[in-house]
Simulated scan of single mutants.
Amino acid sequence: MEQESRRTGRDETEDERADRMWGDLIQEVRVAQTGVQILFGFLLTVVFTPRFTTLSDTDEAIYIVTVVLGSAATGALIGPVALHRLVSGRRMKPQAVAWASRLTFVGLVLLLATMTAALLLVLRVATHDDYVPWLVTGVVLWYVLCWFVLPLWTRYRYTTR
């Protein structure tokens, strides 16, 4: 235990660590859940607007893909709550944290895809310009940098060995 405590900088049991990590994970999921639920809610209303009937076949296909991606992202980001509820009290918190973390990561990837598709659709409908794919690519690269590259670089750079 002494060696583990020096390596991590924390003096906590496996259960205490799992409790802490669960709390951290749920706070993170709350942020992502809110974003995906608001986006998904707006996406669901689009089909009921008069403009929807004027969409081209391509834009309609992008809309359908966006809604399906948003639905999948919502499921993945709500998944940790259902997981916790179904395994709570069964002395499997470390395993629940690991699976909830995986679901959250999948949810973030699906949220990235949803936001990409939604941005593509909105900009295509709003501008009809050839630069839209380039603009969307730039925004996606920004998301990837903020959500994945910087965190992974930070993890690599500052992980104690």
Rank of each mutant, 00 (worst) to 15 (best):
M1D: 09
E2N: 03
E2Q: 08
E2F: 02
Q3H: 02
E4R: 10
S5M: 06
R7I: 01
T8N: 00
T8V: 04
G9F: 00
R10W: 10
E12P: 01
T13G: 05
T13C: 01
T13S: 15
E14H: 00
E14S: 00
D15A: 12
R20W: 01
W22I: 02
W22G: 02
G23K: 04
G23L: 03
D24V: 11
L25Y: 00
L25T: 01
I26V: 08
Q27S: 05
E28V: 05
V29N: 04
V29Y: 00
V29Q: 00
R30V: 04
T34P: 07
G35F: 08
G35R: 03
G35I: 12
V36A: 03
Q37L: 14
I38M: 06
I38E: 06
F42G: 14
T45A: 14
T49K: 14
T49I: 01
T49Q: 14
R51D: 15
R51N: 11
F52Q: 02
F52C: 01
T53I: 07
T54A: 15
D57F: 12
T58K: 06
D59W: 00
E60A: 08
I64H: 07
I64T: 10
V65E: 06
T66V: 08
V68N: 02
V68A: 11
V68Y: 03
L69D: 02
L69Y: 09
G70A: 06
G70F: 09
A72W: 08
A73N: 02
T74A: 14
T74S: 13
T74M: 12
I78Y: 15
G79Q: 04
G79S: 15
V81P: 01
A82H: 05
L83V: 05
L83I: 05
H84Y: 12
R85S: 13
L86T: 07
L86H: 08
G89F: 00
M92D: 07
M92F: 01
K93Y: 04
K93M: 09
P94E: 11
A96K: 03
A96I: 07
A98R: 13
L103K: 00
V106Y: 14
V106D: 02
L108D: 03
L108V: 14
L110F: 09
L111Y: 09
L112K: 02
L112A: 07
A113V: 04
A113S: 12
A117E: 05
A117H: 05
L121E: 11
L121Q: 11
V122E: 08
L123T: 08
L123N: 02
L123Q: 09
L123W: 13
R124Y: 03
V125C: 09
V125P: 02
A126M: 13
H128P: 02
D129L: 13
D129R: 10
D130F: 09
Y131D: 12
Y131M: 03
Y131S: 11
V132M: 04
P133N: 12
W134T: 11
V136W: 06
T137I: 14
T137M: 13
V140I: 14
L141H: 01
W142K: 07
L145G: 14
C146D: 11
C146M: 14
F148N: 11
F148D: 06
F148A: 15
V149P: 00
L150S: 09
L152A: 15
L152S: 15
L152M: 14
T154C: 04
Y156N: 08
R157A: 09
R157V: 00
Y158N: 12
T159V: 08
T160P: 01
T160I: 03
R161S: 05
R161F: 12
R161G: 06
